[in-house]
Design a protein around this nucleic acid. Structure first.
Length: 759
DNA sequence: CTAGGGTTAG
C-alpha cells in the first residue's frame, strides 16, 4: 500500500494493524510521519508499544527529538525498545547529557539496560568527561555481567582514555580476551594524547603484528593524539607513514596534521596539504579552514591567512578565532582587536575561545588594562570563562601588579573548580610573584597536586626576581630530586639568582653542569647571567674574556650586563668598549648613554659626561617616557613621567615637595647623576620629582590608610634617585613599598631595600 | 543493533 492509498483510505478508518505497520516502515518525510501519528492517536492505538516504538524511530530519523520525547511520555508502559531507539539516536547525534538523562530514566523505570544500551551510555560519559558516572556504569556492568561484552569493553577503554585515566583504560584492555581494532586504536591514541610516543607507537604497531590492520579512523586517532599533546614531529611522521602504507587521508586527518605542520613552520608542506584540500573539495570544511588559517599564521604568512579567512562563511566562528590568534601571534594586535570589535558589533555570538584569545593577546602585548576590561565584558556577555581564560588573564594582573584583580581571579578559579589545572597554578605563582607576594606564590606552589616544568620554573624565577637566591636554588634542587629535568628557562632563573646574590662558585657550578650533566648548550641569556655574575663581583676582565669564548655573538643583553658591572665598579675603559658596542646594537636605547655618562660622572670626568649628553642629543634621543602603575582600591592608575593629566596632580606635587624637604632635612640629598639635561640644580630636582615611580608612590600614600603596603610597577629600570627617595619614604611614612622594574623586585621596608644599594 | 578519528584560546 502506498502513502497515496493511505491518504484515501484514511477517511474510512478501515486500516488494520498490518497495513499501518507497513506504512510506518515506508514513511520517510516528516509530514507523513505526523499524519500517521495523528491516525494512531485517533484510532486509539497509542497504547500499543509496538506501534509507538516504530513511531519513535520515525521521528528520530527526522531529527525530531521533542516529538519523539512526547511519544515516549505518552506511553504508559515504555519498554526497553522505546528507550533504546531514543538513546541510540541521541548518542549518534552527540547529545551526551540527553543520553544520560534517558539512561537514568530507564533505570528509574526499573528496566535493566542491555549490551546495546550500555556502550551508548558509556560514550556519553566519555563525551562529558563524566568519569565518576562512567565508573558507576562500569560497576553496573561488572555486577550484571554485561561488562564481558566486547562492545562494552571497547567503549570503556575509550571512555577512560577520553577522561585521561589511562591506567584504568589499560586495566580494562588487559582483561579483554580478544581486543579488537577499536580498543587497540583507542589505547594507542590515548598514549599519543598523553605525549607518550613510545607506548603509542608500540600499541599501534602491536595491533598490526597481531593481524589487526589499522583503518582510517585509527590512523586519524593517533595523528590527532600526537597533535593534541604537542608531539608535532610524530603527528607529521604518522601522517606521512599513513600515505606510504597506502591510506588516503580525509578531512579528519588533515585538520589534525595542519596544526603540527604549522608548529614546525614547514610552509612547503603546508601549501602541499592546502592544494590537496582543494583537490579533494574539502575547502569548505570548517575545521580545515580554521586549521589552515592557524597553519599560515604560524608560518607567518599573514596574507595567505587572511585570504583563507575571506573564503570562509561569515558565521564561521572557528575561522574567526583562528584569525584573531594568527594576527596577534604575528604582532598585529591592533589588527586583531579591530577584527574582534567588528564581529562583536555585528552581533556574532562569540564563544570562550574568541574571548580568551583576545584576552591572551592583550596580556601578551602590554595591553593589560584592556585585558581586564575584555574579561569584564565577557562576563556581561554571559560567556563562562574556563581555565584557559583564567591562565590568560592572570599575567595581565601580574604585569601591572593589580593584586586585587589577581586575587579576584584566583577566587573565581576556586569557585569554578579549576584550581588543580597546572596552567592556572603556574599563572597564579607568576602573578603573586609579580605582585610582590612571594610567600603567597609559594603557598599556591605547595598546594598544587600536580606540578610540571612550568610550575617549577615559575617558582624558581619568582624567587630569583625577589633576590631570594637560597630559596631559588632550593626549588631548583627539589625539582630535580622530584624527577623533573630542568630546561633552559630553569637555568636562566637559577643563574640570575646566583648572580644577584653574588654566589660566584655556585653560579659557575650550575653553568658548567648545563652541558656536562644535562646536555644543554648554554644560550646567550645564560652568558648574560654569567657576565653579570662575574661583573658584579668585580671580575670584569674574566667576564670580558668569557664573552670571547661564546659560541654565538654576544647580544645587547650580554653587553648590557658588562656595562652595568662597569658602572658598579667605575671601570671607564671597559665601559667605553661595552657602550660603543651597545650604541651599534641598539642605537635607540637611551639607557646605554645614561649608564656611560654615569660612569664618567662617578670618576669626575665631567667633560666626557657633557660629550655623551651631546652625542645623545645629536642622535636625537631623549629618555623613553617612564611609566608606572599602581592599584588603589580596585582601580589601576597609570602615571607618566612629567604627566599633569592625573586629576590629583597638584596634591601629588605638593606632597612630593614636602617629602623632598624632609629627606634633605634628614641629611640625604638627591642623586643628580640621573638628570641628563644640563640645567640648574634646582631644575634638576624638579625633573627628578617628575619620575613616574615617585608620582605613583605619593599617589598611593595620599589615597590609602597609613600603614597600607603599596605596589608599583615601572616600565623602565627604577632610577637611583627614586631608589634613594623611596627608601626614605618607607621609613618616614612607615610603609612597605614594593616596586617592580624591568630588572627585578625591590621591597622597601623601614628605610632598607631587599636588593641592598642601587647599583 | 550498539563502540573508535577533526580546527581555533594557555
Amino acid at each position: 500500500m502506498s502513502v497515496r492509498q493511505f491518504q484515501t483510505l484514511r477517511a474510512f478508518d478501515t486500516l488494520n494493524h498490518n497495513s499501518i505497520l507497513s506504512l510506518i516502515t515506508k514513511s520517510k518525510s516528516l509530514s507523513q510521519t505526523q499524519q500517521i501519528h495523528a491516525h494512531i492517536l485517533k484510532t486509539g492505538n497509542s497504547n500499543d508499544t509496538y506501534f509507538t516504538n516504530n513511531l519513535l524511530s520515525l521521528y528520530l530519523n527526522c531529527q525530531r527529538f521533542t516529538d519523539a520525547e512526547s511519544v515516549l511520555h505518552s506511553l504508559p508502559n515504555p519498554n526497553i525498545f522505546s528507550f533504546k531507539a531514543l538513546i541510540h539516536a541521541s548518542s549518534k547525534s552527540n547529545l551526551f547529557s540527553y543520553t544520560l538523562v534517558l539512561f537514568s530514566r530507564l533505570i528509574s523505570a526499573c528496566i535493566l539496560p542491555d549490551v546495546h544500551i550500555l556502550p551508548s551510555a558509556i560514550k556519553a560519559c566519555a563525551g562529558l568527561s563524566a568519569v565518576e558516572v562512567g565508573k558507576q556504569v562500569h560497576g553496573f556492568g561488572l555486577t550484571s555481567g554485561l561488562a564481558l561484552d566486547s562492545f562494552v569493553e571497547a567503549s570503556l577503554v575509550h571512555m577512560y582514555v577520553k577522561c585521561n585515566q589511562l591506567k584504568c583504560a589499560r586495566k580494562v584492555f588487559d582483561k579483554m580476551l580478544e581486543p579488537d581494532l577499536v580498543s587497540w586504536s583507542a589505547l594507542a591514541s590515548g598514549y599519543a594524547r598523553r605525549g607518550d610516543v613510545v607506548n603509542a607507537k608500540l600499541v599501534f604497531d602491536q595491533a598490526g603484528k597481531l593481524g589487526i590492520e589499522p583503518n582510517l579512523v585509527s590512523w586519524n586517532g593517533i595523528i590527532a593524539g600526537f597533535n593534541q599533546s604537542g608531539c608535532y614531529p610524530e603527528a607529521v611522521c604518522m601522517f606521512l607513514r599513513m600515505y606510504s602504507e597506502g591510506f588516503r587521508s580525509d578531512g579528519a586527518s588533515i585538520s589534525s596534521v595542519l596544526p603540527a605542520i604549522g608548529d614546525l613552520e614547514d610552509l612547503k608542506m603546508g601549501v602541499q596539504v592546502h592544494c590537496h584540500v582543494i583537490k579533494m573539495g574539502l575547502e569548505c570544511d570548517i575545521c580545515i579552514i580554521s586549521a589552515l588559517i592557524d597553519m599560515y599564521g604560524k608560518c607567518r604568512c599573514t596574507l595567505e591567512m587572511s585570504r583563507v579567512f575571506e573564503g570562509a562563511e561569515e558565521t564561521d566562528l572557528g575561522a574567526f578565532n583562528a584569525l584573531v590568534a594568527g594576527l596577534s601571534r604575528n604582532g598585529l594586535v591592533d589588527e586583531a582587536f579591530k577584527v574582534f570589535k567588528k564581529f562583536k558589533r555585528r552581533g556574532t555570538e562569540l564563544n570562550v575561545v574568541s574571548w580568551t584569545s583576545m584576552i591572551g593577546s592583550c596580556s601578551q602585548h602590554g595591553k593589560d588594562l584592556e585585558a581586564l576590561e575584555i574579561f569584564r565584558e565577557m562576563q556581561l556577555a554571559k560567556v563562562m570563562p574556563n581555565s584557559v581564560t583564567i591562565s590568560s588573564l592572570l599575567p595581565a594582573c601580574g604585569n601591572i601588579a593589580a593584586l586585587v584583580h589577581g586575587k579576584a581571579t584566583h577566587c573565581f578559579s576556586l569557585r569554578n573548580c579549576f584550581p588543580d589545572d597546572v596552567y592556572v597554578g603556574s599563572a597564579l605563582i607568576d602573578m603573586y610573584a609579580n605582585c610582590g607576594r612571594i610567600q603567597v606564590a609559594r603557598l599556591v606552589f605547595d598546594r598544587m597536586p600536580v606540578r610540571n616544568l612550568v610550575c617549577w620554573n615559575a617558582m624558581t624565577s619568582g624567587y630569583a626576581m625577589h633576590g631570594k637566591a637560597k630559596e631559588a636554588i632550593e626549588i631548583f634542587e627539589l625539582m630535580q630530586r622530584s624527577g623533573q629535568k630542568p630546561d633552559f628557562i630553569s637555568f636562566t632563573s637559577v643563574l640570575s639568582a646566583c648572580s644577584q646574590a653574588g654566589l660566584i662558585e655556585q653560579g659557575q657550578y650550575y653553568f658548567n653542569s648545563m652541558s656536562r650533566v644535562h646536555g644543554l648548550q648554554a644560550r646567550v641569556e645564560h652568558y648574560a647571567c654569567m657576565v653579570s655574575l662575574l661583573g658584579r663581583a668585580g671580575k670584569l676582565k674574566e667576564a670580558y674574556s668569557m664573552m670571547s669564548t661564546m659560541p654565538v655573538e654576544p647580544d645587547s643583553c650580554v653587553w648590557g650586563a658588562l656595562l652595568s658591572s662597569c658602572r658598579l665598579h667605575r671601570n671607564t675603559s671597559l665601559g667605553e668598549i661595552a657602550a660603543n658596542k651597545l650604541f651599534e646594537l641598539e642605537p635607540k636605547n637611551p639607557g646605554n648613554y645614561i649608564l656611560l655618562s654615569n660612569i664618567y660622572a662617578s670618576n669626575n670626568r665631567w667633560k666626557e659626561v657633557d660629550r655623551v649628553r651631546d652625542r645623545m642629543k645629536y642622535v636625537g634621543l631623549s629618555k623613553n617616557p617612564g611609566c608606572s602603575w599602581i592599584e588603589i582600591k580596585n582601580k589601576v592608575h597609570m602615571l607618566l613621567a612629567g604627566d599633569d593629566l592625573h586629576p590629583q596632580m597638584p596634591h601629588i606635587m605638593e606632597k612630593l615637595r614636602k617629602l623632598s624637604m624632609d629627606m634633605k632635612n634628614s641629611g640625604v640629598s638627591h642623586d643628580m647623576d640621573f638628570v641628563l639635561q644640563d640645567v640648574e640644580e634646582q631644575d634638576k630636582e624638579l625633573i627628578l620629582c617628575g619620575h613616574s615611580e615617585k608620582l605613583a608612590v605619593v599617589l598611593g600614600i595620599l589615597n590609602t590608610n597609613p600603614g597600607t603596603p603599596l605596589s608599583v610597577i615601572k616600565n623602565l629600570r627604577i632610577c637611583g634617585d627614586c631608589h634613594l627617595f623611596i627608601k626614605f619614604i618607607s621609613s618616614f611614612e612607615g610603609r612597605e613599598i614594593y616596586v617592580r622594574d624591568t630588572n627585578r623586585f625591590h621591597h622597601f621596608n623601614e628605610g632598607v631595600c631587599s636588593c641592598g644599594d642601587y647599583w
